[in-house]
């Protein structure tokens, strides 16, 4: 008897849940894939944004880390999910680089870019012990010494700051490998190594070096952006100091697999916009020293496309692109 009752109950519940399919999006938890490890900057941005989107949409947004392969694994997982709005992810700048390196066929065109939510320009940082007080002085020294004398670090081989460095050197009419790049597991190990005397330059974002700059171990010489950064008003742009027009910035975006239904896309973009403008998100980004940048839908996709072309050019010239 009990058994039959249970069956009936289960059947009833099943009927209820299948009726729920007809309901409006979203009616079940959304999964947000972060292609980088728990604890990193991208993970923190994803988790906070997820918490705010959850408030907005009323269903849980579960952050899921899919790490490894310099981001290839996670980005593939986002792109290969069903485009039903229940899987979204944080897409990072690597999507514009890894296909040039020949690591994957995946490009930004396999995604529906929903919004760009952050951007941090690259910088030029040296150890305080090195005695440089301006980027001009550094550049002069780099030019006067033979190629390979200076070493730089801050990402893996062919990573964003490697490309940023190569692009800067090219813009100063130097060979892209005039400064030897030493691959590292990220900006923090690169900075530590620079302070320990292992390398000379770290061209990563200034936000990543903030604590070391505050501790007077690292000096920020320039920012690779068109304007000075709010968090670092004393650091000049490259254009101001050496006259180079090279700019590079990492961004983080929210993306979904390509082919999202239009109504779902609009709903998600609006939820992300509210989350972006929330006090919690704005405060968090400011406190962490991360740059705020907002672009939605097609505008965001255009930024992603522009960077893709620019990186392709630099990476080919620097020999970082696959033949």
């Amino acid at each position: 008897m009990h058994f039959i009752k249970t069956i009936a109950a289960v059947g009833g519940l099943m009927a209820m849940t299948s009726a729920a399919w007809a309901q409006e999006y979203p009616e079940r938890p959304i999964q947000m894939i972060v292609p980088w490890g728990a604890g990193g900057g991208t993970d923190a941005v994803g988790r906070l944004l997820g918490a705010e989107i959850q408030k907005e949409l009323g269903v849980p947004v579960n952050v899921v880390n899919r790490t490894g392969g310099s981001g290839v694994v996670g980005h593939s997982a986002i792109a290969n999910a069903d485009p039903d709005g229940y899987t979204i992810g944080i897409m990072t700048i690597e999507i514009d680089m890894m296909h040039w390196q020949g690591l994957t066929e995946l490009t930004y065109e396999d995604f529906d870019v929903l919004a760009i939510v952050n951007s941090d320009p690259g910088g030029v940082m040296v150890s305080a012990d090195a005695g440089f007080d301006s980027v001009e002085a550094l550049l002069e020294k780099i030019k006067s010494e033979p190629a390979g004398t200076f070493k730089a670090s801050g990402t893996g081989q062919g990573g964003i700051w490697h490309v940023g460095l190569a692009g800067w050197l090219l813009s100063e009419d130097l060979a892209p490998d005039h400064v030897t790049f030493v691959p590292s597991q990220g900006a923090a190990p690169g900075l530590t190594d620079m302070v320990a005397g292992g390398v000379d330059i770290v061209p990563s974002s200034l936000a990543e070096g903030r604590s070391m700059i505050d501790a007077k171990r690292v000096v920020a010489l320039a920012t690779m952006s068109a304007d000075r950064q709010d968090a670092f008003p004393d650091v000049p742009t490259l254009a101001e100091s050496t006259g180079s027009d090279w700019t590079v910035a990492v961004w983080r975006s929210v993306a979904a697999p390509a082919g999202l239904p239009e109504d779902v896309k609009v709903k998600l973009m609006n939820a992300i916009e509210t989350a972006y403008n929330s006090e919690a998100y704005q405060e968090f980004m400011k406190d962490r020293g991360f740059g705020l940048r907002w672009a939605k839908g097609d505008d965001a996709a255009a930024i992603v496309a522009t960077d893709d072309a620019a990186f392709g050019e630099v990476m080919t010239k620097a020999g970082l692109a696959a033949q």
């Binding site: 849940t17 079940r28 579960n62 952050v63 899921v64």
Partner: peptide, 15 residues
Amino acid sequence: LLVPLPRSDFLNFFW
């Protein structure tokens, strides 16, 4: 712990 265990469509009242 929010581990995304595979969902089962006909037992999803546990979610």
